[in-house]
Design a protein around this nucleic acid. Structure first.
Ligand SMILES: [Mn+2]
Ligand SMILES: [Mn+2]
Ligand SMILES: [Mn+2]
Ligand SMILES: [Mn+2]
Lengths: 144, 144
DNA sequence: CGCGAAATGTAGCCTGGGCTACAACTTTGG
DNA sequence: CCAAAGTTGTAGCCCAGGCTACATTTCGCG
């Protein structure tokens, strides 16, 4: 082969890393949501909302604990650490911006919500800022 | 828990499915690229461009063959089936549209290319059409 | 031609993220 | 207050997608 484009490799690498962080991001956001609604996040509820079997949620929570994002005692609810809560807040904000951007460029609401769940994890800081700037511009220039 | 929003579950499910298709999509596109450039795709080149070790590429190609997307004989290059080529073409087109959309809303070129590699796999048909429509509109209304 | 280098293949390891089946604990209502 | 129902945990399976180490085959050149 001739040369190997380093940007392309970097793109694949970033996509892989993002994919490996995606699960933790969705769990943390979900735990935070449930904590707001019910005061605590229970394994059954986490599993139900994510659409997985409860042992799957259990394993995932074990990973979060290992990574310092959550804490829990046996047979009790799951709670986020400060670090986990900070991540949740960031993930929640990004989710909203991604949905808003999709809608702003003409994606139907329902579809925007569905696609955003996957897209969000691959949106970098730089891209997120660009989305925010775009949304600010199109809000301002609106004829409503 | 009270009710469980079916749209939310569907979003997570779609994201999981997209993630599981992402690898095949990137490999098929890459094999197609290499076939155009060199007439055939060799394992070493596929691995180098995707930034993985060659046995990883080898296993992935075995999966593509199992799924009817590619064919190859031992120690020879890899070739796409008609189905594989059709997928490659579709994936290539979507990649271009996603990059163009990102740039159109103000994401810097280099960042757009990097983020698109992950985002593309989560862009549904509906969203893709919305992107295309948006790009057509903004092309038309441009002052260039 | 034949030999060393390069490419490809294979074996076997790890982790993540799904699942089912079953065990253990907690909650609850009769 | 205690048994049944519900919830959580554990064991053990599967597959994907990474890796390294090593075996095999093909290629290219002296
Ligand atoms: Mn998500
Ligand atoms: Mn989300
Ligand atoms: Mn990609
Ligand atoms: Mn791509």
């Amino acid at each position: 082969m001739t040369e190997t484009d380093p940007t392309q490799i970097k793109g694949f690498d970033r996509a892989r890393q993002a994919a490996s962080r995606a699960l933790a991001e969705d769990y943390v956001e979900m735990i935070s949501d449930l904590a707001r609604e019910f005061g605590e996040a229970r394994i059954t509820d986490i599993a139900a909302r994510l659409g997985v079997a409860h042992p799957t949620a259990n394993k995932a929570v074990a990973r979060l604990k290992r990574e310092g994002l959550a804490v829990s005692r046996p047979y009790r609810g799951v709670f986020l650490t400060e670090e986990g809560e900070a991540l949740a807040e960031q993930v929640r904000a990004r989710h909203r911006v991604v949905v808003a951007l999709l809608r702003a460029v003409g994606v139907p609401d329902e579809v925007a919500e569905l696609d955003a769940e996957g897209i969000e994890h691959h949106v970098s800081q730089r891209t997120l800022r660009a989305f925010e700037a775009y949304l600010a511009r199109s809000e301002t220039g609106k004829q409503g």
